[in-house]
Design a protein around this nucleic acid. Structure first.
Length: 846
DNA sequence: CTCTCCCT
């Protein structure tokens, strides 16, 4: 009666492996019969000692149908020897020996009873899918296996995966490999035809391969695309130019059950069917009668970012394992054909396996489960892949904020309540907080909604991110009024699941039915997503700053975007500026009461560009959000000085009220220092003065708060504080302000020119005043000759020299000739060295 | 033109 399946000839090996090694791995492709035949074959083994077998399935549907199938093989009802348990549904009786449960249920079960006292064998089915609960469940189970139960056994069953890694993890468990039962599939590689400069879109490439496949084959067709957008585009291309006898069905998770069912329905003899699907058709949904698969080779997967605490979707090339799984879908009922939209060469560069969830998703739930297990460092357990370190740190940090972990990263009482809920820790925390304020039921409803997919099916451009809109509709359903705003297409199945789930959660938390005040959604969700509380940015519509410091925006105006404060619940995960999909209004008043213990008062002193002065303000902040700010008149003078000094440094020393005398003293001091003969003088260069302002200037800035008030400071006293009286004398002597020339007049020495310090000061003097001066005057202890600018009687420079002796000897003759022509009345002696110097036209006769 | 799939 029962059909013989490939796995059955391996049963003795499996029994032997489990008996002697207590662990085993079965590698078998789909169709081998491992899921249904193996548990039944082991039921009477003496080492099982009449204890239970737990069979873990990754999906609810798989758990239910597998239990039904096995019960059928025993000619029994489900709930007798074979039972199952999934969320919200349990059929397990007193005689049940095989419990088929989903992986999430197993996590709860082992947390409640770590020794699994009545269990003799745990089987992980479809382990190659590497869901987070598979990895977590195995890690916990291995500890029970090693530390508490030397009579328990573990069996891991999987299709293609690196089975040696699992075997090694379980102490070199024996690996049993079985063939599957499937038909041969021909693989055809068709790389996209477009040129590199102008690549063809996936949808166009798919459409042309579909046309080719329609002529080469005659079965039903399954096309794999990465997402809904691509499916809709391809659908509209095919609608236009395909024979009406060929029916095209989209298939993806968010499609109503009714529409999904149309895709499964077998087609008539005279018709052909094309199903365009996401990866949902890779494992979760089997479409009977498919003999042709067309694979675009892409998948869309979430990727958690510890920096933002959010996930974003990425479109990636599939792994080889995934491509083979898709191809296998065409060989279930007969020989098949698979068209791959990449080249055989490119195939080599595909990853062997899809990245396991534990390396790419939000780990908050995992971190809480581990804390409940008593583990704060995942390294204490055995893993195929250790959880991503940064994500795990982020997760623990969030759990501390939610009050689930204490500073030593141990689970708190609050955390224990959260972990038993079977919800994301954010949502569990929200429900506990809400129930304290009598809004528990609304919180359960919101949690149930966020756990499901969105049930409003929006048309183009009608999208509305307001969570209150969904709550209104759920409200209408529960009160049977059904008076929500019409005009939305609604997935009623999802709403009914939400209501079921809400009831269960309310029971779990002991919440009694209360009225649900939709306007409280903001304050409830703020507890779940404190990092996503957001404040509208100044003068910018639809653009917000979140408490985490990241940006968020709405694509259009809506009832939420009009508020100054919101909670952005669901975003696209963009690192800088995320698009908001779901949000709810919030308010400053609620923020102040909900988080009164986390608000920080910050006093800041800053430079006000408008008044060019120091200003003090007080801010009330929630993380990066400034809730209140006000100017305060009481400014700390010391801090004000520091701000003022920073501003002076930014603008440069020239902003200070320098007098000519001070500037000259500064220039002369620096000049002397630069000659190298006066090393003991302090360094008074602008650069050093600027740097040391806190030392020499700060004591004189008391009571000064603006640039304007700088005028009244005693800069002279400040500057002179840098020089001793003796040093001042040295400067006066060696770098004099004036120098006496032969004519008897005192001429100024210029030490700098347009703020550039000279290495020799300039002495401007009429040529005739220098008669009788043999050599260039020298300063700085006679080490530096001044730079002479010799002027005509009209004050025009005629010669620049630092060697006066040479000028008289060689150049003077030519100069004299020239000047005598233009200034004939003046005195131009032939022997200037012995002539009388004069500052008049001619020297006075005595 | 809002985002893959799954689960406590």
């Amino acid at each position: 009666m029962t059909q013989t399946l490939p796995i059955q000839k391996h049963v003795p090996d499996i029994i032997n492996a489990l008996e002697t090694s207590r662990c085993a791995v079965i590698q078998a492709p789909p169709g081998a019969g491992k899921t249904t035949r193996v548990p039944l074959a082991l039921l009477d083994e003496p080492w099982l000692a009449n204890k239970k077998i737990i069979l873990l399935e990754p999906r609810r549907l798989a758990a239910m149908s597998c239990a039904a199938h096995m019960a059928g093989l025993l000619k029994e009802q489900v709930g007798q020897t074979i039972g199952y348990q999934i969320r919200l549904d349990r059929k397990i009786g007193p005689d049940t020996r095989i419990e088929v449960i989903t992986e999430g249920i197993f996590t709860r079960k082992i947390q409640n009873d770590p020794s699994l006292e009545d269990v003799g064998l745990v089987i992980f089915d479809e382990f190659h899918e590497r869901h987070i609960h598979s990895d977590l469940g195995l890690a916990l189970c291995l500890e029970t296996f090693e530390a508490l139960r030397d009579d328990m056994r573990i069996l891991v069953m999987s299709a293609t995966m690196d089975v040696t890694a699992v075997s090694t993890l379980m102490g070199n468990a024996p690996v049993i490999v079985s063939k599957g039962k499937s038909f041969p599939v021909e693989t055809i590689y068709i790389p996209p035809s477009g040129r590199q400069s102008r690549p063809v879109s996936v949808e166009t490439a798919c459409a042309s391969v579909i046309r080719r496949a329609l002529s080469e084959t005659d079965g039903d067709m399954l096309v794999f695309l990465p997402g809904v957008k691509e499916i809709k585009t391809l659908y509209s291309i095919l609608e236009k130019d395909l024979d009406p006898a060929i029916h095209v069905f989209p298939l993806y998770g968010n499609l109503a059950r009714k529409d999904q069912a149309r895709a499964f329905r077998p087609s008539n003899q005279s018709e052909r069917k094309i199903v365009i699907a996401t990866s949902i058709a890779e494992t979760s949904i089997t479409i009977e009668g498919v003999s042709v698969v067309i694979d675009a080779g892409l998948m869309r997967v979430p990727r958690f970012s510890p920096q933002t605490g959010m996930s974003r979707l990425e479109t990636l090339r599939v792994s080889k394992a995934s491509a083979d799984q898709r191809r296998g879908r065409s060989g279930r009922t007969g020989p098949g054909k698979c068209y791959r939209l990449w080249s055989e060469y490119d195939h080599q560069s595909l990853k062997s396996y899809t990245k396991p969830e534990i390396l790419s998703i939000d780990l908050t739930g995992v971190a809480l489960e581990l804390a409940a297990w008593g583990v704060s460092d995942p390294g204490q357990l055995k893993w195929l892949d250790l959880p991503d370190e940064k994500s795990f740190e982020q997760a623990k940090n969030l759990l501390k904020i939610l009050g689930a972990l204490d500073e030593q990263e141990r689970i708190t009482l609050h955390g224990k309540k959260m972990s038993s809920a079977g919800l994301h820790p954010r949502l569990a925390h929200m429900i506990i907080k809400a129930s304290e304020k009598n809004h528990g039921l609304l919180a359960c409803r919101i949690a149930a909604f966020l756990n499901e997919r969105d049930f409003i099916l929006f048309d183009q451009k009608t999208f509305d991110p307001d969570i209150r809109l969904r709550l209104e509709i759920i409200d209408a359903f529960t009160s049977k009024k059904k008076t929500w705003q019409k005009g939305f297409k609604i997935n009623k199945g999802v709403i009914h699941r939400i209501i079921e789930s809400e009831k269960k959660t309310a029971r779990d938390f002991g919440i009694k039915p209360t009225k649900t005040d939709i306007e409280k959604a903001g304050t409830l969700l703020a507890h779940a997503y404190p990092d996503r509380i957001a404040k509208k940015r100044d003068n910018r519509n639809n653009t917000f700053l979140m408490a985490s410091g990241k940006g968020a925006y709405f694509t259009g105006i809506n009832n939420v975007s009009l508020n100054d404060y919101i909670v952005a619940v669901h975003l696209d995960g963009n690192l800088q500026n995320a698009k908001i999909f779901l949000a709810v209004p919030y308010s400053k008043q609620d923020l102040e009461t909900d988080f009164c213990d986390r608000l920080k008062s910050v006093h800041t002193i800053l430079w006000d560009k408008k008044t060019n002065g120091v200003r003090a303000k007080k801010e009330i902040r929630f993380e990066t959000l400034v809730i209140h700010h006000q100017s305060i008149s009481d400014i700390d003078p010391d801090m004000a000085c520091d701000i003022l000094i920073r501003e002076i440094q930014r603008r440069g020393l020239a902003i200070l009220p320098w007098t000519k005398r001070l500037t000259s003293l500064k220039d002369r001091a620096v000049f002397l220092k630069n000659t190298g003969r006066f090393q003991d003088l302090p360094d008074l260069s602008d650069k050093t003065l600027e740097k040391n302002m806190a030392i020499w200037l700060k004591p004189f800035l008391t009571g000064v708060f603006s640039l304007k008030q700088l005028e009244r400071i005693d800069l002279e006293a400040a500057f002179l504080s840098l020089l001793t009286w003796k040093e001042q004398q040295i400067i006066e002597k060696n770098a004099p302000t004036h120098i006496k020339v032969p004519s008897g007049s005192k001429k100024p020495l210029k030490y700098s020119n347009e703020n550039i310090l000279l290495d020799s000061p300039v002495l401007e003097v009429r040529l005739q005043e220098m008669f009788g001066q043999t050599v260039t005057p020298k300063i700085a202890g006679l080490s530096v000759p001044v730079t002479l600018h010799l002027l005509s009687p009209a004050g025009r420079p005629v010669q620049i020299t630092r060697d006066l002796e040479n000028f008289w000897k060689n150049t003077y003759k030519d100069v004299k000739k020239d000047l005598k022509g233009r200034y004939p009345k003046h005195f131009w002696p032939d022997d200037p060295l012995n002539a009388k110097p004069t500052n008049r036209v001619k020297p006075k006769e005595r």
